[in-house]
Amino acid sequence: MAAEQKAAAVGQGTGPATGYRLLLPSQWAQIPLRRGTDEAIERILQDAYARIPADAPRDKIGPYKQELARRFRKAVAGAQEHKGLDLYLPVRPVGDDDFNLGASILVAETVLPVRDSSASQTPPSEIAVQLLTRDGAGEADLSSGEVDGALAVRREHVAAAAPDKGLVAASRRVEYIVSVPEDPDRWFIAAFSTIGGGDPRDELSEALVEWFDAVMATFRWRRG
């Protein structure tokens, strides 16, 4: 499923969905995870290197670049392990802030096994809830609605730190799982994660969650 990061909203249209559109600020970059990943990584890193002050100590630049590349590639590799389609990261500074990996949006899709047409059909809303609760997040806040005319279930929860999995801090997670129009076995997933200002329930986390909900309000299907 293809993506367009910055595009005008389109109408409902007809025909099967072949991609999606999201409106994101220019500070956020899209990294495709199936094709063109290395090229996107290199382009983003070179843009970051170009912002290094000209008067920076020469003996500090090399280690800084290496650490920046290591952190960035690690984030991308983690997203690829989850079989994502696209990863969005805030890669350009806001004010005096530096390269910040404290938030991310991972886009993925899942395909349900082919169902027996003779069996009773499970309501799509129930399928969506099952998909969102299958990893055992028991205290998740679930709600349902629509995203660009398609059934959507929203889950919000706090994921505990898991140093053994590389998660050194707790994070606030918001996930939308959306039924792909005219293809009942396919589901679109947009997963937002942030550590906020160090506390997943602090004011920064709250503001970023509201921001992500606003981003999802710009979501539109792209049809063939």
Score class of each variant (00 low, 15 high):
residue 206 E to Y: 08
residue 127 I to S: 00
residue 181 P to A: 11
residue 133 T to Q: 02
residue 119 A to C: 12
residue 153 V to W: 01
residue 196 G to S: 04
residue 193 S to M: 05
residue 161 A to V: 02
residue 200 P to C: 07
residue 188 F to T: 02
residue 128 A to S: 00
residue 200 P to K: 05
residue 152 A to P: 04
residue 151 L to W: 04
residue 147 V to I: 12
residue 121 Q to L: 04
residue 201 R to E: 14
residue 145 G to K: 08
residue 174 V to M: 14
residue 153 V to Q: 03
residue 144 S to M: 07
residue 195 I to C: 07
residue 156 E to M: 14
residue 182 E to H: 12
residue 200 P to T: 03
residue 185 D to V: 11
residue 155 R to P: 01
residue 125 S to C: 05
residue 121 Q to H: 06
residue 124 P to E: 06
residue 185 D to G: 04
residue 151 L to S: 05
residue 119 A to G: 01
residue 207 A to V: 07
residue 208 L to F: 11
residue 166 G to Q: 04
residue 134 R to S: 09
residue 177 I to F: 02
residue 148 D to M: 10
residue 199 D to R: 13
residue 130 Q to M: 05
residue 192 F to G: 00
residue 141 D to C: 06
residue 161 A to H: 03
residue 151 L to F: 04
residue 195 I to D: 07
residue 119 A to K: 09
residue 131 L to H: 00
residue 190 A to M: 00
residue 191 A to V: 11
residue 184 P to K: 13
residue 206 E to G: 13
residue 153 V to Y: 05
residue 208 L to K: 14
residue 178 V to S: 02
residue 165 K to A: 06
residue 139 E to T: 11
residue 194 T to D: 04
residue 135 D to Y: 04
residue 139 E to S: 14
residue 189 I to V: 15
residue 180 V to A: 06
residue 165 K to G: 07
residue 209 V to T: 15
residue 198 G to M: 08
residue 138 G to C: 00
residue 178 V to W: 00
residue 160 A to R: 11
residue 205 S to R: 07
residue 182 E to M: 10
residue 209 V to F: 00
residue 123 P to H: 06
residue 166 G to N: 09
residue 153 V to A: 01
residue 202 D to W: 08
residue 166 G to Y: 08
residue 202 D to P: 06
residue 163 P to V: 12
residue 196 G to M: 05
residue 134 R to F: 07
residue 181 P to L: 00
residue 177 I to S: 09
residue 163 P to F: 11
residue 189 I to G: 08
residue 207 A to P: 14
residue 119 A to L: 10
residue 180 V to G: 13
residue 129 V to N: 14
residue 124 P to K: 05
residue 145 G to R: 12
residue 165 K to E: 12
residue 144 S to L: 08
residue 119 A to W: 09
residue 118 S to I: 05
residue 147 V to S: 15
residue 204 L to A: 14
residue 187 W to I: 01
residue 164 D to N: 15
residue 207 A to Q: 15
residue 203 E to W: 07
residue 143 S to V: 01
residue 144 S to I: 06
residue 166 G to T: 12
